[in-house]
């Protein structure tokens, strides 16, 4: 348990609902879910496969929209007016995403896959000035995930665990306020999964706010707090 947790909630979701309409049938994935995440907190969201965990995480991370409810980040409404541009800004600056299937860009090397986050944040005119700095930070974070020796490799030359480390480095290089991880260990063997989890715990130890989705009880138990997604509703453990 970390003591870096502050009392002020960084992310507040209230009454978030999401359904998919497929012809005449309607699938209610999320039914008025509410949660808050405090600064420095490590929250785990658990649930069976298909229970809507990814959907919830996407909405929290401004990747997806909800039909009802509200998401507030640091006092700002994520889905307010001019939301598309605002959501892009949130994703670019405040959030870092890690996915179950790594989702690296296959044409890019390890270093480039990490640097791309910085490139997206920097207009072309400013890139030359900031490149050295961005590179330094990218190398530092790659070192932290233990892949310094592999920066010139392409994703298909790496193991699953190594790929997920690159994904983690990519999600963290711009120092996001929240790291959103969607079953980061779900596709890995026990050992690699443990490695990733250790990294997450280490980051949490440094004060990183983390929201992690998992269906593995053992993984969830390492978090500060676990929420259960059952029948579209969130329940505390």
């Amino acid at each position: 348990m970390s003591n870096a947790t502050s009392d002020k909630p960084l992310l507040i979701a209230t009454g978030v609902s999401k359904h998919y309409q497929m012809g005449p049938s309607r699938l209610d994935v999320l039914k008025a879910c509410s949660l808050h995440v405090k600064r420095g907190e490590f929250v785990a969201i658990m649930g069976r496969s298909g229970s809507g965990k990814s959907t919830l995480l996407h909405i929290l991370g401004a990747l997806d929209t909800a039909q009802a409810g509200k998401v507030e980040f640091d006092g700002q409404d994520v889905f307010g007016a001019g939301s598309e541009r605002r959501r892009v800004r949130f994703r670019r600056n405040q959030f870092g995403f890690v996915f179950q299937f790594y989702h690296l860009l296959p044409e890019l090397t390890v270093l480039e896959n990490v640097l791309i986050t910085e490139m997206i944040r920097t207009p072309i005119a400013g890139w030359l000035a900031r490149r050295g700095d961005a590179r330094k930070r990218a190398l530092a974070i790659i070192d932290r995930v233990g892949l310094s020796a592999r920066i010139r490799h392409r994703p298909n030359e790496l193991s699953g665990g190594e790929r997920q480390r690159v994904a983690l480095a990519r999600a963290l290089v711009h120092q996001p306020a929240i790291l959103l991880a969607d079953e980061p260990t779900g596709n890995l063997d026990r050992e690699s999964g443990a490695g990733i989890l250790d990294l997450l715990l280490g980051l949490h130890g440094d004060g990183q706010t983390i929201v992690m989705v998992t269906h593995d009880k053992a993984v969830a138990d390492r978090a500060d707090r676990t929420l259960n997604l059952v029948d579209g509703r969130l329940r505390d453990e």
């Binding site: 994703r91 670019r92 791309i116 986050t117």
Partner: peptide, 14 residues
């Protein structure tokens, strides 16, 4: 398609 999703997820605009 997937790469485009990734780029958007990590902050690329439409």
């Amino acid at each position: 398609t997937r790469d485009i999703g990734i780029i958007k997820a990590i902050g690329g605009s439409s």
